[in-house]
Amino acid sequence: MMDRIKDLRYQIMLALYMPILLYAFSTFDLSEESYAVQSVDPVVTGQQTVVLGQPFQAKAFLSVGREQGQQLSASGDLQAVGDTAFQMQTNELLSEGEDEKTVSYDGTFRFQQVDGEVSRIPVSGQFRVRRPEIVATSENAQSLYRRCLNRLRIRVPGLENRTLRLEYGGQSTEGQTIALSPGGKQSTVDVYLADSTQSDDVYLGQKQFSVISPPRPDINVRNAGRDIQNGDNLPKRRASLNFSFKPDEEFRSRFPQDARYRASRATVFLRQGLAASEKLGTFDLSSDGRLVLTRQLRNAEPGDQITVRLEGVVRINHAGAAIPLSLNEASRTYGFIVS
C-alpha cells in the first residue's frame, strides 16, 4: 500500500515540474560553438582630444567568463599596455602646417573559447589631436614695449610638467620664462617640447606679440627752485633752467630700468621787441639737465621773449642704450618772458 502511495506522489510531481524542466533545457545552449564570453562587444573609453606631445591613452574592456584569459594587442603606432589599455605617442602626428587632425587606431582582443580554440575580436576607435594653446603672461598684457626688458612666462595647458624650449630673436632657452627686448613692430616666440623621446624637439606652435613704444614722459621745467610754465617770467640775472622728466607712473613701476630720460642740448631764440626772433645758438645741458643762459641774455630787455627748444631727447634703457624719443616740436618747446 505504501509503495503505491509513493509511486502516485512521484507521478504527480513529475506532471507538475516536467514542463518547467523542458522549457529550461530548450533555452540553454550547450553546442560546440558556445563561447565562455559574457559579452563579445569590446568597449573602449579614452580621451576624445589630446594636444600634440600629450600621450593618447584609452582603456579597453572585454568581459570574459570562467576566468578565461584575454590578451590585447595593437598595430601601427598604437601600443598595448597590459591587457586593458592602449597608448599612442602624438609627437609626430601633425605635420608642418597642420593644426589638428583625427587619428584612427586598431587593436585586437584574443581570448579562449570553452573548446580551447582562440578567438580574436577587433577593437578600434579614433581621437583628435591638435596643437596646444600657448598662453603668455607679461608685464604688459599681450603687447611688448620696444627696446625694453620684457619678461614673459610661457605656459602650455596639458603639458604643464613637460620641459619647453623657447626660440626668440635668434636665441634659444629651455624653460618657461624669458626676457626679450624687441626692436621691430612684432615679436614671435616659437615653442618646442624639449623632453621628447624623438631625436628632434617637437614644434608645438608660436606666440606673436605686437610691439609698441613706451608711454612718453612729462617734462618739468624749474627756475631757481620753482616750477615755471610757458609764458612765465624768467629773471635775467638768474636765467637758469632745469629740465627733468617724469615717466609714466605705471611704466616706471614695471620697467624701472627702462624709464630713464635725458636731453643733451637746447636751441635758444630771442625776440626783442617787434623784431624777428634771433637764434642765440645751441647749448649743451649739464648731466642733471641744467641750462644757464645768463651770458646769452645780458643784452636782453625786460619784456623780450625767449624760446627754448630741447634737442637730443633720449630714453636710457636697461642695456644703457640711448634711444631717441619721437616728440613733436611743440611738446619740447618752451617760451618765457625776460624780466
Rank of each mutant, 00 (worst) to 15 (best):
A300H: 02
V314C: 08
R295K: 14
L291M: 02
L325Q: 12
N317D: 12
N299Y: 07
A322P: 02
I306H: 01
D288T: 15
R290P: 02
S326L: 11
E301H: 14
L285I: 05
G312D: 13
I316A: 04
I323L: 11
S286H: 11
L293A: 02
E301S: 15
R290D: 08
I306S: 00
A322Y: 03
L327M: 11
G320A: 12
R315M: 10
L291C: 01
S326K: 13
P302K: 11
R295D: 14
R315C: 09
S326I: 09
Q296N: 02
R295V: 08
G303Y: 01
Q305F: 04
L310M: 14
R295L: 08
H318P: 06
G289N: 05
V313Y: 05
E311P: 10
L297W: 06
A322Q: 07
I306T: 01
V308L: 08
R315W: 10
G289Q: 00
P324S: 09
E311N: 15
T294N: 09
A322H: 03
S287C: 04
P302A: 14
Q305T: 10
G320I: 12
I306A: 01
R290T: 15
S286L: 10
E311I: 11
L310K: 12
N317E: 05
A300F: 00
Q296D: 00
R290S: 12
L291G: 01
S287Q: 13
G289K: 00
L325R: 11
Q296A: 00
I323F: 07
R315I: 11
I323W: 06
I316R: 07
N299V: 05
E311F: 10
V313M: 05
H318A: 15
G289Y: 02
R298D: 07
G303H: 03
I316G: 03
N328C: 05
A300Y: 00
L325V: 12
A319R: 15
G289F: 02
L310N: 12
G320W: 12
R295M: 08
N299H: 08
P324D: 08
E301W: 13
N299M: 07
A300W: 02
E301L: 14
I306C: 01
I316H: 03
S326N: 14
S286Q: 11
L325Y: 12
V313N: 05
A319G: 14
S287N: 13
N299K: 12
G289E: 01
N317H: 03
N328L: 04
G320L: 13
S287T: 15
H318V: 10
V313G: 03
I316V: 15
L325C: 12
L325D: 10
L310G: 10
T307H: 03
N317Y: 04
R298H: 09
G312F: 06
P324V: 07
V308K: 04
R309Y: 05
D288E: 15
A300N: 02
S326T: 15
N299C: 02
N328T: 06
E301V: 14
T307Y: 02
V313Q: 06
T307E: 13
L310W: 09
